[in-house]
Design a protein around this nucleic acid. Structure first.
Lengths: 137, 137
DNA sequence: ATATATTGCTCTAGAGACTAGAGCATGATG
DNA sequence: CATCATGCTCTAGTCTCTAGAGCAATATAT
């Protein structure tokens, strides 16, 4: 049996975050010690690692909740889980594309700025005047 | 003189967001009509466009506040503005790199999943077992 | 001139995913 | 047995908005 601190150290999830996940219904309420402290089993730890892993992959709490619920019905078809992962992958790709446009724009702004005073600073000028931008954003 | 709705339409910033920016001190309190409605000048519109543009580029409210303050002292050196933009560019690059690792991981997970039931769904298995991952994340 | 429709006002609360702090209880170590 | 880290609950704060309630002002149509 692990204390919440042990669990935190082993999974890399902070103590308040563990309690938050419990509150959100991602992990079930654990057993308690005589003094009302949480005591976790190995199963609890696996569940938390699952959540942590999903969060690291950028899944939302809701998506993880859905995946947990799916994983508890091993006989059902896995199309649901597949769909969640694919949709998320698509989101990630969109975000990458957005950020690349941004990177490009910022590079241009920064490299153009060789003024010495704010008056002719390209950073400020570019922000003031959208017309100086290359792409749309 | 523009109403808040006009301003919203012309800058693409939603009405409640404009009021929010006012509350945050990014735009100064505008004049009011007899009936206490906000009335905006062209200068206000330019300021709001500046903010909008900065937000589109992913700058935080704080960064924008700093840039506004800089832009009001045209005689000062522009190193500050340059630094803000460069730091942000660096952040953007880091985020792109992170998301690319993620994309890769998700691609792998999704492409491996040809099981038909949750029991052998690679999505679920990958989440349960970090050992199945290629990189660290 | 009046009826209606749209837009505006303030204030409060919610979203998402935590994080921080207060004030007190428990448990492990010397 | 004393001390101190760790645990508990509860509330509030982070950030950038967004939504809704309930009411006031303005614009348009008749």
């Amino acid at each position: 049996m692990l204390t919440i601190g042990d669990l935190s150290r082993r999974t890399g999830v902070k103590v308040p975050t563990i309690r938050y996940y419990e509150q959100m219904g991602l992990i079930s309420e654990p057993e308690r010690s005589e003094g009302n402290q949480r005591r976790y089993s190995k199963t609890d730890m696996e569940r938390l690692a699952f959540i942590r892993h999903g969060r690291d992959l950028g899944l939302t709490i809701d998506a993880i909740r859905e995946l947990i619920s799916l994983s508890q019905h091993p006989d059902r078809p896995c199309a649901g889980a597949d769909r969640i992962a694919k949709e998320h992958l698509e989101d990630v790709r969109i975000k990458i594309a957005q950020l690349k446009r941004l990177e490009h724009e910022l590079e241009r702004i920064v490299s153009h700025c060789d003024g010495h005073s704010i008056e002719d600073c390209y950073v400020i000028r570019a922000l003031s005047d959208h017309g100086l931008c290359e792409g749309e954003h």
